[in-house]
Simulated assay, not measured.
Amino acid sequence: MALDLSIVDKPLEPQTFSYSWKDTVLYALGIGAKKDELDWLYEGRGPKVLPSFAVVPMFKPMLDCVVKTGGDLSMVVHGKQGVRVHAELPPEATLSTVARVRGIYDMRKFAIVVIDCEIKDTSGKLLADTTSQIIIRGAGNFGGELPPKEAKVAEVPKGQEPDFRIEEKTSPEQALLYRLSGDWNPLHADPEFAARVGFEQGPILHGLCTFGYMVRHAAKGACGGDPSKLTAFETKFSKPVWPGETLVTEGWNVAPGKIALQVKVKERDEAVGTASWALART
């Protein structure tokens, strides 16, 4: 089925998303938060909300944009994710998200759909904006344009050891836990479905789960364990991760408040999150 290019640059209707502190804690657990991160896990301390939680109210409006392309959803994988935080997310709120397809690009073997979202509170205050790149495998070669080149925010310095390295093993059930934050794709739960769409090894971890681990690790390595200091972060999902594998985030402080990042899987010594970076208040 041909992709519907007419949806480009046409914002969808705003979608509301209401949540409580239980949802923010469930998200934190889904991206690996441990008992020493109690501020984000216990309502007696707020709880505080991890800045990457912005992908939760983003997810359904973003997915609705993907559906409107007419692409085969069974062939969809997450290619890249970025978030910019404008204000701290509260532990309980009703938010409004507007999603818009910025472009649909032809990579010959696959298509890339770039989707921007703005997330505001009920007063209209902008809390976060996000950019998602979604890959639809097998949907390329439709005669479209290549994506425009993007400016590089922070690059890993060649030949330089990282300023920090944080290693953390995911659980075999990590994807089953993360999916409770709203991404019900059977690719992350059903072995038969995963094999049918090319992942014979089994269900893969959500890219946004790996993203959340990276954000937690960046906060630990560059912000003294305070995620609220992070104002923006992005990664490209270069390779799949399987639940139970060990994620290793390496970071380089390339300038004040600017961190270049790379995420690897220890067991395969393979980079799974590349062209990654974070910005932080100094």
Rank of each mutant, 00 (worst) to 15 (best):
P162E: 06
D183P: 05
Q160G: 02
E155A: 14
E168P: 07
F199M: 06
P172H: 09
I166D: 13
G159E: 05
F164I: 04
Q201F: 05
P157T: 12
H188Y: 06
T170G: 04
E173V: 10
L180K: 05
P191M: 06
P162V: 10
E200D: 15
R196D: 14
H206F: 00
T170A: 07
L176S: 12
S171I: 04
P186W: 05
E161S: 15
P162C: 03
E173A: 13
L205R: 03
E200L: 14
R179G: 01
E161C: 07
K169N: 06
D163N: 13
L205Y: 04
A189E: 03
I204Y: 08
L177A: 06
F193K: 00
G182N: 01
E161K: 15
H188E: 06
K152C: 09
A195Q: 13
H206W: 02
Q160M: 13
R196Q: 14
Y178D: 00
D163E: 05
A195S: 13
Q160W: 06
E200N: 13
A195T: 04
F164N: 10
E173Y: 13
N185T: 03
P191V: 10
P162M: 08
P162D: 09
L208K: 00
G159S: 09
T170P: 01
E161H: 11
P203T: 02
Y178H: 05
H206L: 01
E173G: 09
V153I: 14
P191D: 04
K152A: 15
P203R: 02
F164K: 06
K152G: 07
R179W: 03
A189P: 01
T170E: 04
S171T: 15
Q160E: 14
F199N: 03
A189S: 14
P191E: 11
G159R: 13
S181T: 11
D163Y: 06
N185H: 10
Q201E: 15
I166P: 08
N185F: 05
E200C: 01
I204C: 07
S181C: 04
W184M: 14
A189C: 03
I166T: 13
A195D: 07
Y178C: 00
G202D: 12
G202A: 10
E173N: 15
L180C: 05
G207A: 12
P191N: 10
P162W: 08
H188R: 02
I204S: 11
